[in-house]
């Protein structure tokens, strides 16, 4: 379903999704690695080795992806036309 027409350029939509998610990811990454020292963690029970900088980076981009997906979903739900949902009991003519 396409979004509704808007007076904003397409980049505004990308910005609205990516930028708040970027801020959220920075905060989440900071909080997570304040509580957890990546050097002390056995990732995947020791099968995966992550250097601290890699752990911070992977954490940041993981959060960014996750929060951006959530932001995008919110935006998409909000922008989708909210017509009558099709109902099997009352078929349209």
């Amino acid at each position: 379903m396409p979004p509704l027409p808007t007076d904003k350029p397409r980049s505004a939509r990308w910005g609205a999704v990516l930028w708040p998610a970027f801020l959220g990811a920075a905060l989440a990454d900071a909080v997570l690695f304040t509580l957890i020292d990546p050097a002390q963690v056995h990732w995947l029970e020791g099968r995966l080795h992550l250097s601290p900088l890699m752990a911070y980076t992977v954490g940041f981009f993981g959060f960014w992806l996750l929060i951006a997906a959530s932001s995008w979903l919110s935006l998409w739900l909000h922008e989708s036309p909210s017509g009558e949902p099709p109902s099997p009991r009352s078929p349209r003519n």
Binding site: P5, T6, K8, P9, R10, S11, R13
Partner: peptide
């Protein structure tokens, strides 16, 4: 044709 987005000048 409905333009969904305005072009950013």
């Amino acid at each position: 044709v409905i333009e969904l987005y305005k072009a950013a000048p």
